[in-house]
């Protein structure tokens, strides 16, 4: 996993960040009018600017996402019936088509943006702590924390397996032999994961775990957290108002 570059958002309680992200995403997902999405697009942008979010890391994501949307638009627009809205060259864009695409593009970008700004720079471990303080069942939190812990280990293991294969003259092409080699790498990775899982279960037993998990952390909720939650709520309210009134 990429190592996290800290932004100024660490001053917020992780619970506040999760609630902001969840609230914004839920409200955005429910919106049916393009204007209603605009506040959801602006809010994470403003928060990101205030807290110096490294927007540059989102550029690749933005290209990919909007590339998909362009493909969707090209394959969809000719088939939507309705009154004409504009015509671009030989293509006539109907107004239901334009509405559909407008909502899709705005919503897609807003959703990804709020998830990225509020959550992507958070240390993954804090995500687990916050969820357990938000009364998510501890078994699930332990599962999440273990996945976070072992992704790095398995990435390394996978890199080692691939290196060993390359050292023995494997070079990826598209043929049956390559496929075989990939399959062996996948099999080896899963085998090691399963082996490791047994030993991790042993390690848990050695530390007095027999079925229930205890939450470890206490977190500190501050006024600033309430302020940001309040702001997020107001944004959500504005969105609903816009959605209803238009």
């Amino acid at each position: 996993m990429k190592s996290v570059s800290h932004d100024a958002l660490v001053v917020l309680d992780p619970r506040a960040r999760i609630l902001c992200a969840a609230g914004c995403c839920m409200a955005t997902a429910l919106a049916t009018q393009p204007v209603a999405v605009i506040p959801a697009l602006c809010f994470p942008l403003i928060v990101g600017v205030i807290f110096r979010f490294p927007f540059r890391r989102l550029s690749w994501m933005a290209v990919r996402l909007n590339g998909i949307f362009i493909l969707m638009a090209l394959t969809t627009l000719p088939f939507v019936d309705g009154p004409a809205w504009r015509s671009v060259g030989p293509l006539t864009i109907t107004s239901p088509g334009a509405h559909l695409m407008g909502v899709m593009i705005l919503k897609g970008n807003a959703l990804v943006l709020s998830c990225a700004v509020f959550l992507s720079t958070m240390e993954s471990a804090s995500l687990g702590h916050a969820l357990s303080r938000l009364r998510v069942p501890t078994a699930f939190v332990q599962l999440l924390m273990s996945v976070i812990r072992y992704i790095d280990v398995l990435l390394e293991e996978h890199a080692r397996i691939r290196l060993a294969m390359r050292a023995r003259g494997f070079c990826p092409q598209f043929n049956v032999l390559t496929l075989r080699t990939h399959a062996v790498a996948v099999g080896a990775l899963f085998l090691r994961s399963l082996d490791r899982a047994e030993q991790v279960a042993d390690a848990m037993k050695c530390r007095g775990h027999h079925g229930t998990y205890a939450a470890t952390r206490t977190l500190h909720w501050r006024t600033a957290d309430s302020v940001w939650i309040g702001t997020a709520l107001s944004v959500i309210m504005v969105m609903f108002w816009l959605g209803w009134s238009v």
Partner: peptide, 20 residues
């Protein structure tokens, strides 16, 4: 790596006492 199954050091070291 098999013994340390929590993402942060404190969680890991506190896991034992907590479950006792």
């Amino acid at each position: 790596d098999n013994q340390l199954f929590c993402p942060t050091v404190l969680d890991d070291v506190a896991f034992g006492p907590l479950h006792l």
